[in-house]
Amino acid sequence: MASTVFAILFYLATLLFVVGLLYRINTYARTPAPLKIPTTPAPTTTGGVVLRMTREVVFFESLFKSNLWIWVFGMLFHASLALVTLRHLRYFTEPVWGWVEFLQPFGIYAGITMLLGLLGLWGRRLFVERIRYISTPSDHLMLVLLIGIAGSGLMMKFVAHTDVIAVKTYFLGLMHLDIQALPADLLLIVHLSLVVALLVVFPFSKLLHAPGVFFSPTRNQKDDPREKRHLSAWAAKLESEKN
């Protein structure tokens, strides 16, 4: 029963995640940027922009300049999440890729650091007056959701083991539209339910910061307005109307 319910949930959530995200990205990409507004000093070449964006996305450069504590907790969370996610590829591949195998031990510790990062961020949200002021209930819930995912995952590793072989069989099956038995294990059910919830809320929430940053004109524009005329379609129309 649970196996079928989760199969349906995962298919739907994945569909929603992919379609929702593509829809958003398409909207961002199609909306024109009529004016040159990079936050200067900005790179003057495409290569420079790629570097700037890489520093922003990989090292959170601007956040580092802003606030060391938010940077530390944010970095801890995101880097750990990346490792943890890569580690989880082992449940979707057979045989497991060599580099995923290599990441396995680090991925487990990353689960702990991910939780620490999240708790740090939540602590700031709760105890720093001005950040508490700007927090909405959904900001807190989002952290609860992620803490729940990390916590239930760690519990399965360190407290009450679940049958990971069966879990893997289940997910490999899902990938071939072949529904296998999912272990009826409370922690696992909690873990997977929260992941489904995360997939669903992603395209509708502030998690859009992930694709959004790539479309941010203050970061992705070249600083070359004097050298190249930049004209959006709707602005060009004004010229043909009036001149």
């Binding site: 024109p32 940027a33 507004i37 802003s66 606030n67 001005r130 950040i131 004109p217």
Partner: peptide, 24 residues
């Protein structure tokens, strides 16, 4: 404006309330 300015469109969605700007 949301359909005319990518900046406005993306900035409305992307904020995570991290507080980096809050004291600037």
């Amino acid at each position: 404006l949301l359909s005319k300015y990518r900046s406005f469109r993306v900035f409305m969605d992307a904020c995570v309330h991290c507080g980096a700007c809050s004291d600037k």
